[in-house]
Design a protein around this nucleic acid. Structure first.
Length: 430
RNA sequence: GGUGGGGUUCCCGAGUGGUCAAAGGGAACAGACUGUAAAUCUGUCGGCAAAGCCUUCGGAGGUUCAAAUCCUCCCCCCACCA
C-alpha cells in the first residue's frame, strides 16, 4: 500500500510539508489523526473547499481518523491570512447554523459514524478562554517580531487597510486549536490551504514549546484553472456544494466546462479514480477529451449529490447538447453511464407557464427576461439582435416575435436557449 | 484631535459647468471559427413594450437655463502629524 504522502504527491495535493522524512515515517503508522479547519462563513461549502475535503476522505480510506474542525470560535475573529480586506465578523448564531450545513455536506465524503471521523467546533474551547491566563500561558510563546514577518500578515501590513488587533490574534487561536487537538485527541497532523502555512507552523511550534512533542503540517496548493481563475468562482458567484444554491445540473456543467489542460489534474484531485487510469487520459486529444470531461463531471457530481442526481444531470446534458457515449476503455473504473439511455430533462432549468399566458402570446424579449436567460429586457433585446437567442433550436429573428402555444413542441414544452450553453425549458402548468 | 488626499456605472480608473448614460482597461455576454475546450477576430455592455422617456457619479440640501463637475452641511476611507 502506498504511503499517504505518496498518494498526495501523485494526485497533486501537496504544496509544502514540514519535517520531510520524519513526516513520511509518521504517516506510515496506523491510525493517525489529522485535522483540517473549515470556516463557517457560509452555510455551504463550495468547490474551493473540495481539496481539503478530498484529502480527509483519502486519509479515512487508508484507515486513519480525520477531524473536521469547524471554526465556530475562530469565525468570531476572522482569519486575515492572504485576505486583502477585513473579514466580516459573524455572530455566534450564524456560525452555529453554518456549522450544521457544513457537517451535512462533509458527511457525503467522510464517514462520521462510530468515531471513524470527528467533527469538532473550536468554539467549544475558544469561547471559554480567559484573557489574562491565555496571554500568560499561550501569548508568551509568540514573538511579535516574528509574527509581523509572517507571509500571511504581510499583505495586510503593507495594504492601505492595515491589520487590526483582533485579526492579529487569529494566529494564536489557530495555534491553540492544534494544541488542544494534540492534547485531547492525539492529533499530530494539520493540513490546510497554502495560505494557512503560517498558522499551521505556529501551532507546531506551540506544541513543541509547551509539550516538547513533534507535530506536522501539510499545505495544499491553491488550485486555479489554467486561465488563472480560482476554482469554483463564476460570474454568478461561487459554485456551491449545496443543491439549493447550485443545482446538480449547474454543478455538472461547471465540471463539463473544464479547460482541456485541467482535465487530468482535476480528475486526480476531485475524484477517486485510479491514478494510472487518469494518466492514460492525458494522452487523449481533441474531441476525445470531452469523454473524459463527461467522466469528470459525472464523478464529481456523484460525490457531492449522489448517483441519482448525477445521472439526471448527465442525461439532461445529453438531451440538450447531444450526447456522446463514453467509450469503455476510458477510465474503466468510473461508474459513468456508458450508453445513452432515455432522455430525461428534469434537471435542466425550467419554469411553468399557464396555457392562457401563451394563448395571448408573449414577446420573445419579454420571455427571455422572465425566465432569467437575460438580466433585463434590454439585455434580452440585445441578445436577440445579436442572434444569440433561440427557440426550439431556431434563431429568433425579432425581439417582438410572439411566443405562443403554437411553439410548444411534441412534448408540450418550449426550449429556450441563450448563446450556446444556457438552456431554459418552459412547461405548461396543468 | 490637526493637516492633506480621496469616495465615479460589476471591478480598476479618466472626467473639474453644457458636446456625459460618462474615456480607457479588465470581467462578462453574443456572433464567427470549434469539441459545451483554449486562442483569435467582430459586436454589445444603466432601466423601460424603447428613434423617445426615466434613473445613476458617497448622502442631504443649494446656485444655475444647465451639475459627476460650483457652494453648504453630513457620512465613510487613506496618508502624515499628535
Amino acid at each position: 500500500m502506498s504511503n499517504l504522502i505518496d498518494i498526495f504527491y501523485e494526485r497533486g495535493f501537496i504544496e509544502q510539508t514540514t519535517h520531510g522524512d520524519e513526516l513520511k515515517e509518521y504517516l506510515d503508522q496506523d491510525n493517525i489523526t489529522c485535522y483540517i479547519g473549515f470556516d463557517p462563513t457560509a452555510s455551504s461549502l463550495h468547490v474551493g473547499s473540495l481539496v481539503p475535503i478530498m484529502s480527509l476522505a483519502h486519509i479515512q480510506k487508508l484507515g486513519h481518523r480525520p477531524i473536521a474542525l469547524v471554526g465556530g470560535g475562530t469565525g468570531l475573529v476572522g482569519d486575515p491570512s492572504g485576505k486583502t480586506e477585513t473579514r466580516q465578523i459573524l455572530t455566534p448564531e450564524v456560525v452555529e447554523e453554518n456549522a450544521i450545513g457544513i457537517k451535512k455536506q462533509l458527511s457525503r465524503f467522510i464517514d462520521f459514524s462510530e468515531g471513524k471521523a470527528l467533527l469538532l467546533n473550536n468554539a467549544d474551547w475558544l469561547t471559554k478562554l480567559k484573557y489574562i491566563p491565555f496571554l500568560r500561558d499561550i501569548g508568551r510563546h509568540f514573538s511579535v517580531n516574528r509574527m509581523i514577518k509572517a507571509e500571511s500578515y504581510k499583505m495586510r501590513l503593507e495594504s492601505e487597510e492595515g491589520l487590526n488587533f483582533i485579526e492579529f490574534n487569529y494566529m494564536l487561536l489557530q495555534a491553540y486549536d492544534f494544541l488542544q487537538l494534540f492534547k485531547n485527541y492525539g492529533c499530530r497532523l494539520q493540513m490546510g490551504g497554502s495560505d494557512q502555512w503560517g498558522n499551521i507552523v505556529s501551532g507546531i511550534e506551540l506544541v513543541r514549546k509547551m509539550c516538547h512533542e513533534t507535530v506536522f503540517g501539510i499545505t495544499f496548493p491553491l488550485i486555479t484553472t489554467s486561465s488563472g481563475a480560482k476554482m469554483g468562482k463564476t460570474v454568478k458567484g461561487a459554485v456551491w456544494l449545496d443543491s439549493e444554491r447550485t443545482s446538480p445540473y449547474e454543478y455538472y456543467q461547471y465540471w463539463i466546462n473544464t479547460d482541456d489542460k485541467d482535465v487530468a489534474r482535476f480528475m486526480a484531485l476531485y475524484t477517486f479514480l485510479p491514478i494510472d487510469e487518469i494518466r492514460e487520459i492525458e494522452k487523449l486529444e481533441n474531441a476525445d477529451l470531452n469523454m473524459a470531461k463527461t467522466v469528470l463531471a459525472f464523478e464529481a457530481t456523484q460525490l457531492v449529490h449522489g448517483r441519482e442526481e448525477a445521472s439526471k444531470a448527465y442525461h439532461a446534458a445529453a438531451s440538450m447538447f447531444g450526447g456522446c457515449a463514453v467509450s469503455e476503455n476510458i477510465l474503466p473504473s468510473s461508474s459513468v453511464h456508458r450508453d445513452m439511455l432515455d432522455v430525461d430533462d428534469v434537471s435542466v432549468p425550467h419554469s411553468f407557464f399557464v396555457i392562457d399566458q401563451l394563448r395571448e402570446g408573449i414577446p420573445a424579449f419579454k420571455i427571455f427576461h422572465t425566465v432569467g436567460l437575460a438580466s433585463s429586457g434590454g439585455a434580452a433585446r440585445r441578445l436577440i439582435e445579436q442572434g444569440g437567442a433561440y427557440i426550439n433550436a431556431k434563431r429568433i429573428q425579432s425581439f417582438e416575435q410572439q411566443i405562443t402555444e403554437k411553439d410548444l413542441d411534441d412534448n408540450g414544452t418550449i426550449v429556450l436557449r441563450s448563446g450556446k450553453k444556457r438552456f431554459h425549458i418552459i412547461k405548461i402548468k396543468k
